[in-house]
Each structure stands twice: as C-alpha cells, then as structure tokens.
Write a protein that binds this DNA or RNA. Structure first.
Lengths: 196, 196
DNA sequence: ACCCTATGTGAATCGCGATTCACATGGACA
DNA sequence: TGTCCATGTGAATCGCGATTCACATAGGGT
C-alpha cells in the first residue's frame, strides 16, 4: 500500500530534486513535506507513495549530494601535482571552493540542525571524508614529506577546522581565492609540511 | 502575571540547576519542560513563573556554562609559561581537558542540534572564543614567535578543528593525556610555531 | 468488459511538547 | 481582619508539521 517503490519513477525523482533545491536555498528548515510536494507539483500525501518518511527522503538527498562532493574532491586529488602534500592541499582547497560557491548547501551539509537520522548520515559523511584525508596523510608520512603524527586526529581536526572556518566567520565576509589561499596555508602548516 | 522575576529566587535557581544537569546528562533533547520541572520538584507551569519561555531558560544555562569554560581557559592562559605559544597551547589544552572530562556537556555546547535562539548563543560563544585566540595569535606574531598569517582564519580553524577532534572520532576512543598531547602538537604546527 | 495495481489527492488525524488557564495558598502589611 | 501579591499547580489547550485515510483514475493484462 505504500513504501517499496521499486526505485525509479519520474515523480520520485522530481521529489528528490525539489527537496534538494529547497535545502540548497533555505536549509532543511524550509523543506517541509508540504513545501517539497508543492514545488514538485503534487499533493503532500504523494510523497508517501515514494518514501516511507520524510527522513528517508532527506537521507537520500544527503547521500546524493555528499557523493558528488566526495567525487569532486577525489578528482581534485588525482588531478593534483605529484607530491602527497600537493594532493592534500588540493582536496581541502576543492572542499573550500565548493563550499564557498554554495554556502547554504555547505551549511546544510556541515552544520545545520537536523533530525537525528540525517544527523547520523552527516557524521558518516564527515567520517568518510576524514578517512580519505587520513589516507593522504599516511602517504605523505611514508613519503617523508611530513613528520610522523596521529593521523586520525589530524584528519578530524582538518575537517573540523576547514568546516568551521568556512561556515563560521567567513559566512559573512567575502569568499574568494584569498580564503582558499588561507586554507592551503593552514593545511600546509597543520600537517607539518616544511615551510616553502 | 508572569515573566519579570526580579532575578533571584530559590526555585528559579533550582530550575537552572536541574536543566543544566539534564543537559549535561542527556543533552538538550532530554531536557523537556516536564523533565526539568520534575527534577526540580515543581509543576511544569511553575517554570513559566520564572522564565518567559524554555528557550530563555536554556540560553541562561548556556551562558552560565560557557562563562565557566571561558574563565577556566583564561586562567589557564595566565598560569601558563612566558611564551605566547605556551599560552595558546595551554588554552586549547584546557579546552580539550574539560571537554574530555565532560563529554556530554561538550557535545551539547559544541554540536548538539538545538533551537535557533540557543544556536545563536552558541555561535556567539564560538565567536568569542575565537576572538580570544585571535588575541593570543596577534601577540605571538608581534613577539615574532610565529609567522604572519590570517589570524581570524587560523583562530576559527583552531576552534573548529579542536572541537571536531573532540566530539568526533574521539567520542568513542579513550580520552587521556595523549589526546591533549595531540592537540598541543596540532596547535603548535597549525600556528606555524618553529618545531621543538 | 472486468479486475487489479500503481499512482495521486484533499481532508482529516496524530503526536507531542510548549504554553496558558483558572484556581489555590500563604505570608506581608494596613 | 481583610486585601494583595508572589508563587505554585493540575488540567486543558495550542501549534504545527508529519502521517494516514478513503476515495479517485488510468492503464494493462486476461
């Protein structure tokens, strides 16, 4: 009588898109079931023909968006110069650029208050991102480019530090390449890369 | 007929304490009006004899707790060794120690989803904390102990980084002096202090 | 033609915590 | 003694979004 929803369906897809757009614009708070349905051009009840609950819909949106972000950062790493430090800088710089280009989305992804289930998803995303950085850190250490350190800690601190710096004080001021430059400099220092 | 509440009153004080204890134990989520009143030993309606709303009560609790944290960190700075870098390390290390000693409270202070008004308070607190760090950073730069840098950025990143590292991955693992040591090392590197 | 399922809908209903209400009680004070 | 005000209370009420309901409608397979 409900749920299941094989997977694909035009309406289902449009619901996801609508939710995503609403979240990108005004955060989770503005993405009520009614608003999502309205923007999709269907009745609120229709949402429940495709998703067991609003949270499930959110989770799917969240995953999709995160997937895109992670992919972009991996691409940045692979396209970066040879050194491991280069790769790390590229990853964080890409993270920053994308966040600055779409502030509301970054806010929703990183910090906006949200239901527990979605929040769990956020933690998972952060964890995953931190893990990617851990990998790069280990590579850099093995390559002798940076000193030995607690990579789990450093990775978490980098994610948190860049996140805070992006949604915090800069949420008001300008957000150009100078911010990206600050991030690069911070990252280089934080990981203990030799100056210059 | 309500509000005002001159300021002091035994019951008022006990309500604040009860709310604080509940928050420290189970976060904001577990601190409903009924729960707070129950723990205080009064009826729910009584809360409204002393506070215009639950949010106002929360804000007051939040401020009190933050005040204590900030005071502790200032004390740590003043008690630290001579160098500006020493002071910075001491501040962050104290921040970490206190957070590790009382994880739930740290979580509530730093990251737990909460109503907009209280959230605004949180932002203010973070801002204030970052400002304190900015001051120390400037002092360190003037003293020539660390290189010139975007202190606003670095300060925000340090707050975010340490916060994330404390409520994130470490929320599960052990939380001893080794974590504090990691923080010190990270801070030293992140601000660009000369090795050793 | 007939039924069955997938999809869609407007109008309730539900849950649940915050908030208000109408009514005590007890001490201060004239 | 009588009035007032601060404080306290159990029992509604309120708000508000998520969720369910009873009822279409359409296309497809037999």
């Amino acid at each position: 009588m409900s749920v299941a929803a094989g997977r694909a369906s035009p309406t289902r897809e449009r619901l996801l898109v609508a939710a995503r757009e609403l979240i990108e614009t005004g955060g989770y708070a503005s993405a009520s079931v009614v608003a999502i349905a309205e923007r999709t051009g269907v009745a609120a009840a229709t949402l429940y023909r495709h998703f067991p609950s609003k949270e499930e819909l959110f989770i799917e949106v969240f995953r999709d968006v995160c997937e895109g972000e992670v992919r972009a950062m991996q691409a940045a790493a692979d396209a970066a110069g040879p050194g491991a430090v280069e790769r790390l800088e590229a990853v964080l710089a890409t993270f920053a650029r994308r966040a600055l280009r779409n502030r509301p989305q970054a806010w929703a992804l990183l910090a906006e208050p949200v239901d527990p289930l979605v929040d769990a998803e956020r933690l998972a995303y952060r964890r995953r991102y931190a893990e990617a950085i851990e990998g790069e850190l280990r590579a850099a250490i093995d390559a002798g480019e940076i000193p030995r350190q607690d990579v789990v800690f450093t990775a978490a601190a980098l994610v948190g530090g860049c996140g805070e710096a992006l949604v915090g004080p800069l949420s008001s001021g300008a957000g150009g390449e100078d911010v990206v430059a600050s991030i690069r400099a911070f990252v280089r220092r934080a990981i203990g890369s030799e100056p210059r």
